[in-house]
């Protein structure tokens, strides 16, 4: 019993370290790609590691109350919980995580938990930029959650399961990725991913020159350190979820990194050539074609 608990804990630690380092590296590569598109040399790929170490070694950190203190912690909890539920490799080849039947529905809830906690924390800072950022973030969430939920519901209807592991097993048995057997759901989910990653044109929450980075404007030092680490862990968790659901999972870590990197480049490359949307434009965008494809996916799942 104790051995099992220790094994699970060790697996969680290893998954966290993996997700952290891969996510941070991806964010550094994002900066490099953006720089190359803008005809700059750009920072080295490990730049974000240095940023994180620097933020973590800041000597002071001011907070404006208990809720503000807890906001980044909520973000971290949400990221780590989603990471622990999402299976990293096929057939449990990596350390086992805590997945169970119905974890897809649980995941829908827990993925919105972090931003909501952060919104509470940002509210207590009293900074008007934070408040505007929070309202924008919630509006955007109302936008992209609709195609995202539609895509997942389509998968649940089509394969009559709410377990991520079952969906992975179906792909392994039939040998067809869900990307091809339910293409509309894939398109809707990818379009919702633009909103989840909040790169431009959907960077309306943390717009640096417009809102002074929005909800995180009062967070410096170790708070920003927690938020950056949780962001990188969450990015890796989301990309792994997409790989598991639509790209047939991965048999080893190399394939996983390759597939997640290809997926990650979609919002990044779409973002570097686009300016920023206004809030209502972003919401209208998500309720337009992405929701239409989500509806098509549900129709396909129900009738074909």
């Amino acid at each position: 019993m104790l051995k099992e608990i220790l094994y699970y804990t060790w697996g969680a630690v290893v998954s966290f370290v993996l997700a952290f380092s891969v996510g941070i590296t991806y964010m550094g590569l994002n900066r490099k790609v953006t720089a190359r598109v803008q005809n700059r040399i750009g920072p080295p790929w490990y730049q974000n590691f240095l940023d994180v170490i620097k933020l973590g070694s800041k000597k002071t950190a001011i907070h404006h109350g208990v809720m503000h203190h807890l906001g980044p912690a909520f973000l971290m909890v949400s990221s780590v919980m989603s990471l622990l539920i999402i299976p990293i490799l096929n057939n449990g080849r990596f350390y086992p995580n805590l997945n169970f039947h119905g974890d897809l529905i649980f995941l829908l809830y827990i993925m919105t938990f972090g931003p909501l906690g952060m919104a509470l924390g940002a509210g207590q800072t009293g900074n008007p930029n934070s408040a505007i950022g929070v309202t924008r973030g919630l509006a955007q969430m109302a936008g992209f959650e609709i195609p995202w939920v539609m895509a997942l519901v389509a998968l649940m209807i089509q394969y009559k399961t709410t377990s991520i592991v079952d969906l992975m097993n179906i792909q392994a048995e039939t040998g067809r990725w869900l990307m091809f057997s339910s293409p509309f759901a894939f398109i809707a989910a990818i379009m919702a991913m633009f909103g989840m990653f909040r790169y431009s044109p959907f960077d309306i929450v943390g717009a640096p020159s417009e809102l002074a980075s929005g909800p995180m404007s009062e967070n410096g030092g170790k708070y920003l350190f927690t938020m950056m680490s949780s962001g990188s862990v969450f990015a890796f968790a989301k990309l792994t979820l997409y790989t598991d659901l639509f790209l047939g999972g991965a048999d080893n870590l190399l394939v996983l990194v390759l597939k997640t990197f290809v997926l990650y480049m979609i919002p990044v490359l779409y973002g570097v050539v686009n300016p920023r949307y206004r809030t209502e434009q972003a919401v209208r965008w998500f309720w337009g074609w992405p929701s239409f494809f989500g509806l098509l996916a549900i129709l396909q799942a129900s009738f074909f």
Partner: peptide, 20 residues
């Protein structure tokens, strides 16, 4: 920007005093 590109040295703009 691209001619002198201070970001390659790790120099980057911060949005608020708390982060700078």
């Amino acid at each position: 920007t691209s001619r002198y590109d201070a970001e390659r040295l790790g120099v980057r703009g911060a949005a608020t005093p708390r982060q700078a």
